[in-house]
Structures are given as structure tokens and as C-alpha cells.
């Protein structure tokens, strides 16, 4: 009872509720893939919008609650909050794509990714929903801007990843003219449209990644005494940046084929995931959290 009350107070219950709608949306998009029924895709999109709205509400509740218990920094720093926010930006990216382009078929991949991320946040023992006070190294106004810009870029790269998969599927069918295109393939936009969208989404993500890394460097300079320390997270953010810079150069200057670009978008997202989760869970560094017994306070 106490924990139920607590989850209402800190907003985490609403994230769990949003997961139900997200699963509904995922199921809807799965059915849409087989039936091609536009009504079902519309209902799925509505469920996704509902999920997004509930999460927006939950974020507001959580932020207010954190503020009330004396925590000035936004609740975005621990694994639970960052995973929830990751699922939020993944959905946001898809909503934008769905509004500006007719990308219903992408819904299946995006909602699947968001379900995995949000389920991990809700059920993994590694991620707890209790709001913990922020450790000294993260008590800074830079934090909000740093995290938001990076997560916006992560969301864009997630969308590019989904589009990359769609491109490879569609392109294979388009080039193999002997095979008859099934219902699923007819739902996908032409590969040229997908290719262009991958580029636009990557460019959007790269811009925010650059902003996020620069803000991070400025923060590190003001808080730690150096703008760059070759900390594993910093280094992996550079690797991520180089991956997408390579994408842009290969596309614009070399005019690489859509297939190659789709593969870079897919591999690039694996780099993003390692930068986001792998580094935290596998390699210790300045971005890992200090404990009171340890000597380092950064």
C-alpha cells in the first residue's frame, strides 16, 4: 500500500500504466503489418499518443515531487529515469515522423524498441523508481541541457535505426523483381523516401549530439577542471559522433548507396546503445556514480 502510494506520488505508477498503452500500440502495429488495416494503425497511433501524454504528465509529477523533497536537479539522472526518458524520446521521434511522413510501418519497430526500454526500466532490478538525491557531481544547471540534447539525438538515431531496417527490407524486394511484393512491403514507402528520411533524421540527431557533447565539455570544464578527460563515456560519445559524421560525408561527398547508409544507421545505433548503456554497465569512469566510501567525488 505504501509503495503504491509512493508510486502515485513520484509518478512512477503512471509510467507503468503508460507501458500498458504502449504494449497495446505495439500489438496494433503488429496486426497492421499483417492486415494493412489503416483503422488499426490509426488506433495504434492514438494509443501511442496516449502513452506519450501519460508519460509527459508523469514527468511533470515526478519533477514536482523531486522538487518538493528538496532535490533541485530534474529526475533524469539514474538508470530508471534515463531509460524512461529514452523510451519517451523514441516515441517522440516516431510521432514527428508519423505526422510529417506516412510512416505507419515504422510503428512496429519503434513501439517494440520503446516497449523493451520501458519494460527494462519498470522490471529490471538494476533500475529502481525511487527518487534518490542527486550526487554532488551532478548538481548543476548544465545537467538538464546536456541530457535533453543527447537524448533527443538518441531518439533520432533510434528512428534512423528503424528506418534503416525498413530500407533494407524494402530495397531487397524492390531490386528482386522476380518476387511478388507482399502486403507488408506495399505498406512501406518507396526506398528512396526511406533513404532520404534516414539522412534527415541522422542530420537532426547529429546536430543535437554535437550540442550535447559541447554542453558536456563546457560542464566538465566548469565542474571538473578539464573540458575533456578521455573518460569512457566521453570517448564513446566521440566514437558515436565520428560514426554519424562518417555517415554524412559518405552520403554527401561520396554519394554512397542507400543500402550502405542504412547499414551505417543500424551500426550507428548499436554504438549509441553502447555509449548510453554499455559504458555505464561495463566500463567505470567519471560518468559512473561515486559512492560515499570511495575517494573520488567526481
Amino acid at each position: 500500500m505504501i509503495s503504491a502510494n509512493m508510486s502515485i506520488l513520484d509518478g512512477s505508477l503512471y509510467f507503468t500504466i503508460s507501458l500498458l498503452f504502449l504494449i497495446l500500440s505495439f500489438l496494433g502495429y503488429s496486426i497492421f503489418l499483417f492486415t494493412g488495416n489503416k483503422k488499426i494503425s490509426k488506433i495504434s497511433f492514438f494509443a501511442l499518443i496516449l502513452t506519450f501524454s501519460i508519460q509527459t504528465f508523469a514527468f511533470i509529477i515526478r519533477w514536482i515531487y523531486a522538487y518538493k523533497i528538496g532535490i533541485d536537479t530534474p529526475p533524469l539522472v539514474d538508470l530508471y529515469d534515463s531509460l524512461v526518458f529514452f523510451s519517451y524520446v523514441i516515441m517522440f521521434g516516431f510521432i514527428l515522423l508519423r505526422i510529417f511522413y506516412d510512416f505507419d510501418a515504422l510503428g512496429f519497430i519503434i513501439t517494440a524498441a520503446a516497449v523493451v526500454v520501458l519494460s527494462f526500466a519498470s522490471f529490471s532490478p538494476l533500475a529502481t523508481s525511487a527518487i534518490e538525491p542527486t550526487i554532488p557531481a551532478l548538481q548543476s544547471y548544465w545537467l538538464l541541457y546536456h541530457i535533453i540534447s543527447l537524448f533527443v539525438s538518441y531518439g533520432a538515431f533510434a528512428a534512423a535505426f528503424g528506418l534503416g531496417i525498413l530500407y533494407l527490407i524494402k530495397n531487397r524486394k524492390e531490386t528482386d523483381k522476380a518476387k511478388k511484393q507482399g502486403r507488408f512491403f506495399s505498406l512501406l514507402p518507396p526506398s528512396a523516401v526511406i533513404e532520404e528520411t534516414i539522412y534527415k533524421v541522422v542530420v537532426f540527431g547529429l546536430f543535437f549530439l554535437t550540442v550535447g557533447v559541447v554542453i558536456g565539455a563546457a560542464w566538465a570544464d566548469s565542474a571538473w577542471g578539464g573540458f575533456w578527460s578521455w573518460d569512457p563515456k566521453e570517448t564513446w560519445s566521440l566514437i558515436t559522433w565520428l560514426t554519424y559524421v562518417l555517415f554524412i560525408h559518405a552520403k554527401i561527398t561520396k554519394g554512397w548507396s542507400g543500402k550502405k547508409m542504412a547499414w551505417i544507421a543500424i551500426i550507428g545505433f548499436a554504438v549509441v546503445i553502447f555509449c548510453y548503456l554499455g559504458v555505464d554497465l561495463i566500463i567505470p569512469g567519471l560518468h559512473s556514480y561515486a559512492t560515499p566510501g570511495s575517494t573520488s567525488v567526481l
Binding site: P232, T235, W236, L238, L246, H249, A250, T253, V279
Partner: peptide
Amino acid sequence: STKLAIFIFITIGSVSMIGTF
């Protein structure tokens, strides 16, 4: 050449990766 640029991006990325492990 852009080929050289792409080679450098990949090599810098790979060398940096070693430094994190």
C-alpha cells in the same frame, strides 16, 4: 579525398575504443 577522411574516422574511432577497454 573523402576515402581518406572515412579511413581516419574509422581508425580514430577504433583506437579511441581501445583506450576505453
